[in-house]
Design a protein around this nucleic acid. Structure first.
Lengths: 206, 206
DNA sequence: ATAATTCTTGATCAAATGGTCAAGAGCGGA
DNA sequence: TCCGCTCTTGACCATTTGATCAAGAATTAT
């Protein structure tokens, strides 16, 4: 069945390449300046592209921003989704915390992008928060509850435990300027990871 | 000695009142939209004042922002400064964490203002971070170290413990949209406070 | 090859926005 | 009361910025 002359369904190679270039540049700019603080000119300059050309691929500034968020939302859920109900609680949580710390180290820009979006009321990702994220957290909270019921974990509110893990791990990406300023040096990820694991896990032992 | 005709040293009553009105409005606007996202018009509208009149009190948008940050920096340090070296470690830390949780509840806007500033590289408060804040944290880290040395506290890195307390407590102000979305309701501060105290303190007992 | 389609850009626009100015209104001290 | 200083504002300006457009260059399909 011939695809009658509709709008481009399949991206050309050039489209794929340029959209990728734009999203890469946009992550740099949006994470550094926020949605309102970033300008289309900046993103165009960083992707070495004229502004009209950039707007040929994404018709509005907001479209770039939304695409960028969607592009990374699934990555965000992955480590939590991998929390294994039949594994050992402390090992599973340790793995999760380590994974989040490594994400903060490897991709602080994505972390700051989300932080900024949520800080400003999450206008673009409200549905994600109330939908997939909420659902996954509920599911994993049940897992933690079952561990507690089985006497394998100290009786801690699972939701607030998850919040605490998010808060602490993402702090090293979002507030790295403050961390470095207070420590007087660029913080070593290994040291931080070890300390965070101790602080968060020590109290969870039965 | 008569004060010769210099610029106004002492603020008039009207100045005091209007500057206060402006700063109140500015906290609302800057915390919601960030420095770049906020507009002078918005702040003027919120303070029920014409834009030129607002700019009579603060000549530039940046001046309002800086005044606002300075206006609250000392409040920020106060609870940590009150950590008492000769008190019981767990009670002192419990008091500190509770104070921070109450600040998140009582003044989430100030928390978001700082979060946004730090997230974007802290261009205006770099000196505060590397100066007074660093110094105070060093001092209190020593207190925690002495508690550990005295066998009154589990051996935890004091700097990362402080970071963890900041991260978790401020999370409830800065990421409240996410917290509420995941829980499906407005979170009750008492519940959150109790959970946070357990999570952070349980592992600190010797 | 060549027609159709996709890609690229200089020039331009309208709106938003930070900030200025001059002139008038209001207030406080002598 | 009167004078000088503080306060207030409508009108205005220059720049920034998101977005458009028309026309030409490059690519792709036949």
């Amino acid at each position: 069945m011939p695809q009658s002359k509709l709008k481009p369904i399949v991206n050309t190679r050039i489209q794929a390449r340029n959209k990728e270039l734009i999203l890469d540049a946009a992550l740099d700019i949006f994470s550094a300046f926020g949605f309102r603080g970033a300008t289309v000119d900046q993103i165009a300059a960083k992707s070495e592209m004229s502004k009209p050309n950039l707007l040929y691929y994404f018709r509005r500034k907001e479209d770039i921003y939304v695409a960028l968020l969607e592009h990374t939302l699934s990555d965000w859920l992955k480590p939590l989704a991998e929390l294994n109900p039949s594994g050992d609680p402390l090992i599973e949580l340790s793995r999760y915390i380590s994974a989040k710390m490594e994400m903060s180290e490897a991709n602080p820009k994505a972390s700051r992008l989300f932080a900024n979006e949520i800080l400003h009321g999450a206008p673009m990702i409200e549905k994600f928060l109330k939908g997939p994220l909420k659902q996954l957290v509920n599911e994993k909270a049940q897992v933690i509850k079952s561990w507690i019921a089985a006497g394998k974990l100290a009786p801690i509110d699972p939701y607030h435990l998850i919040f605490a893990i998010w808060a602490v791990t993402q702090h090293y990406a979002d507030f790295s300027v403050q961390v470095d300023a207070v420590l007087g040096r660029r913080e070593d990820i290994r040291t931080a990871q070890k300390a965070v694991l101790e602080i968060l896990l020590r109290g969870l032992k039965v």
